[in-house]
């Protein structure tokens, strides 16, 4: 019984972030969460394939094209810090600008 309570109490909170990828922005491009949160990104594109890469977490995934579904990425925001993310699939003139940051607060 105690085990069960402990298990329940220790389950980290989950936060779902809905994100739109579009030449050449992630909307929103800044996301803030508390340390210990499990962040679930759900990203859909309004045009072509984009990439979603968080170098500090070894994440690098493809966001499907418009109408082809969404990308789900779970990020365990254990440690406070700034985790920059970027588009990793060339998508046009502003590709290098297509970036954002996940801020994990204490």
């Amino acid at each position: 019984m105690l085990w069960l309570l402990l298990l329940l109490a220790a389950a980290p909170p989950t936060k779902v972030i809905h994100m739109t990828a579009e030449r050449f922005t992630f909307i929103p491009s800044q996301v803030k969460v508390k340390a210990g949160t499990v962040v679930e990104f759900r990203i859909h594109s309004e045009d072509t394939n984009h990439g979603f890469r968080i170098p500090a977490a070894g994440i690098n995934e493809v966001i499907p094209k418009r109408g082809k579904g969404e990308l789900k990425v779970v990020f365990h925001a254990d440690r406070p810090g700034r985790y920059e993310f970027e588009c990793s699939k060339p998508c046009g003139a502003g590709h290098n600008m297509m970036r954002g940051v996940l801020i994990v607060e204490e």
Binding site: P55, G58, E70, K72, F75
Partner: peptide
Amino acid sequence: PGTKPEDKPGGKSEAYPTEAE
């Protein structure tokens, strides 16, 4: 740590922050 444990249909992946590589 830092790698995705599993790819689920629908492109779901999981990751943990690591020392910035």
